[in-house]
Amino acid sequence: MRGLLELVRIIVIFAFLGTLLGFIPHGIYSTIGIDTDKYGWLYMLGIFIFVFVLYRNKLQFSGWYKGKGREKLPKGLSKTLIITAIVLLISPPILHFFFS
């Protein structure tokens, strides 16, 4: 039962934080004239990578599941994923500049 509750918690966290954090770049990019329909998937992928790192390193330890497999991501992988998320977040303006 705890595993099912944790799965529902993960879905809610990803949906809530993904939506909430997705409004920020969408608003900024729409304001400066970037086509968010064409490049929106890039920054959303970056946001979901960031939320994944946040969940694995912080949020999983405050949930209902207390079984095996609860460990942080290795520091090198966390840094790589965060850098990838940042690159994905800033790539829509760059791509818009080069391909428009």
Rank of each mutant, 00 (worst) to 15 (best):
M1C: 12
R2Q: 06
L4C: 03
L4H: 03
L5K: 12
E6P: 02
E6H: 08
E6Y: 00
E6G: 06
V8P: 04
I10T: 02
I10P: 02
I10A: 06
I10G: 04
I10M: 15
I11N: 00
I13F: 07
A15R: 13
F16Q: 06
L17E: 00
L17S: 11
L17C: 05
G18S: 10
G18E: 14
L20D: 00
G22R: 09
F23A: 02
I24G: 03
I24T: 01
H26F: 14
G27Q: 12
I28R: 07
Y29L: 14
S30C: 05
T31K: 14
I32E: 14
I32S: 12
G33V: 12
I34M: 12
D35Q: 11
D37R: 06
K38E: 15
K38R: 04
K38C: 07
Y39R: 06
Y39I: 00
Y39K: 03
Y39W: 05
W41R: 15
L42C: 05
Y43D: 11
M44Q: 09
L45C: 08
I47D: 03
I47F: 02
F48S: 04
I49N: 05
F50Y: 14
F50M: 15
V51E: 01
V51T: 00
V53C: 05
V53R: 08
Y55A: 00
R56K: 15
R56P: 02
K58F: 10
K58P: 07
K58I: 11
K58A: 02
L59E: 03
Q60F: 13
F61Q: 05
G63L: 04
W64T: 12
W64C: 11
K66H: 06
G67F: 08
G67K: 11
G67C: 09
G67Q: 08
K68A: 15
G69I: 11
R70D: 09
R70S: 07
P74Q: 01
G76C: 02
G76Q: 04
K79G: 00
T80V: 03
L81E: 04
I82Q: 11
I83P: 13
I83F: 11
T84W: 12
T84G: 13
I86A: 05
I86L: 01
I86C: 13
L88C: 11
L88M: 00
L89V: 11
I90F: 09
P92G: 10
P92K: 12
P93Q: 12
P93G: 09
P93H: 13
L95M: 11
L95S: 10
L95K: 08
H96Y: 08
F97W: 10
F99Y: 15
